[in-house]
């Protein structure tokens, strides 16, 4: 593989457990991680991030602004309209997937995840 600069990943999750696991896995794979602890914070972090993240990984169930809201918000932002957003959630049912999709999610990962699956999902949209 060619030499790539460190990619930033924005993870949005209200669970510190999940955030820690994500950070562990992603940093282990050489990504730089920035975090938002709920949807609103996630959007704030996204707006303020320089350089911007290459991909967003977001939880669905969160206070204040849920994952669907995050995706919709991202899709409405000029700069990030096409930013890959991967939904990370325990919801494996199709309805949630469909809703995430309709909101503009690029893909999803089912929790609990392992770091390989996480990394390959990110590679899938950032190669």
């Amino acid at each position: 593989m060619t030499e790539t600069p460190t990619l930033r990943v924005l993870t949005i999750d209200d669970s510190r457990t999940m955030q820690s696991m994500l950070r562990n896995a992603l940093e282990g794979a050489g990504y730089e991680v920035i975090q938002g602890n709920d949807g609103v914070e996630g959007i704030d972090v996204l707006e303020a991030a320089t350089p911007p993240p290459a991909v967003i990984i977001t939880d669905i169930n969160m206070p204040r602004l849920d994952g669907f809201g995050v995706i919709e918000a991202v899709r409405k932002m000029d700069r990030f309209r096409h930013l890959p957003v991967i939904v990370l959630t325990t919801e494996s049912d199709q309805e949630k997937k469909a809703r995430a999709r309709a909101a503009g999610a690029t893909g999803w990962i089912i929790k609990p995840f392992n770091s390989d699956s996480l990394v390959s999902a990110i590679r899938r949209v950032t190669q």
Partner: peptide, 20 residues
Amino acid sequence: DDTVNAVFRAVHSIKGGAAS
């Protein structure tokens, strides 16, 4: 409005972490 959601989220979060 958000109370039921918060309650749901709490259990949901515990489940998610526990599964991991």
